[in-house]
């Protein structure tokens, strides 16, 4: 299925949960937050949240940056 991940279309296996997706992408779940179709997915809901075709996901974390700067990473 195709989902939109951090603004880019991405092909992932059907029926993935958020937990599986993070594993698939090799992303450590600590220090990340996930937004699914503009709603935050709590960490304790990662396991039970199954993704569907066309879902839009944001996966964010903390990056270098001070005061209105976008540097590093």
């Amino acid at each position: 299925m195709t989902i939109t991940l951090n603004g880019e279309k991405k092909e992932v296996p059907d029926g993935m949960t958020v937990t599986r997706l993070l594993e698939f992408l090799n992303i450590q779940r600590q220090r990340v937050a996930v937004e699914l179709n503009l709603e935050i997915v709590k960490k304790d809901k990662f396991e039970m949240t199954t993704l569907k075709e066309g879902d839009s996901l944001e996966v964010v974390s903390f990056m270098a940056g001070g005061i209105s700067l976008e540097y590093g990473v």
């Binding site: 951090n6 903390f62 990056m63 990473v73």
Partner: peptide, 19 residues
């Protein structure tokens, strides 16, 4: 220490994180 909140780099997972 103040940090920004940004999209995780999906393509290149080899990059280090400041934290």
């Amino acid at each position: 220490v103040t940090v920004s909140v940004r999209r995780v780099n999906i393509i290149d997972r080899s990059k280090e994180n400041l934290l």
